[in-house]
């Protein structure tokens, strides 16, 4: 015969203090919300350096592919042969039509040219599947 009451044991439950965990969870939430906007993913554009330009693009033929960032009026444009392009998308479309991708492309950049355009020109050459892209600084 058991004289002890079982009810006493059954009512005893393990209690977890949740307050601290909730505190920390909210702290983490705030951390990720605030830092999330500042974190950026960086990638690389690999390019060769050519100290001197290898020549000028012919006005009629587009080979070899030489992209020059030149000043026209108050702004800069991408010049390929005789064509002047204002956007990187146009440049990519044009470069895709080049048959010879093995010899690579040259990006000639003058000192005053916006670096954004120089980087975009390298990207366009890469997107157009040129095997190598050479960065050529010009005065």
């Amino acid at each position: 015969m058991r004289l002890t009451s079982r009810g006493v044991q059954r009512d005893r439950k393990i209690e977890l203090a949740m307050t601290s965990m909730i505190d920390m969870t909210f702290l983490l939430l705030i951390f990720f919300m605030t830092t999330g906007g500042f974190m950026t993913i960086e990638r690389d554009l690999d390019s060769a350096i050519k100290e001197r330009p290898s020549g000028r693009a012919a006005s009629s033929d587009l080979e070899p592919a030489i992209v020059e960032i030149t000043r026209v009026g108050s702004g800069y444009v991408y010049r390929v042969g005789s064509r002047e392009l204002t956007t990187a998308r146009e440049l990519t479309d044009l470069l895709r039509k080049f048959p010879n991708k093995i010899d690579g492309a040259y990006v000639r950049v003058s000192d005053g040219a916006p670096f954004e355009m120089a980087a975009a020109a390298i990207q366009s050459c890469k997107d157009a599947r040129f095997l190598s892209v050479a960065y050529v600084p010009i005065d």
């Binding site: 950026t40 993913i41 960086e42 690389d44 554009l45 390019s47 060769a48 350096i49 990207q123």
Partner: peptide, 8 residues
């Protein structure tokens, strides 16, 4: 040979 950093 250089690599140019870009932001995705």
């Amino acid at each position: 040979q250089i690599r140019v950093g870009v932001e995705v």
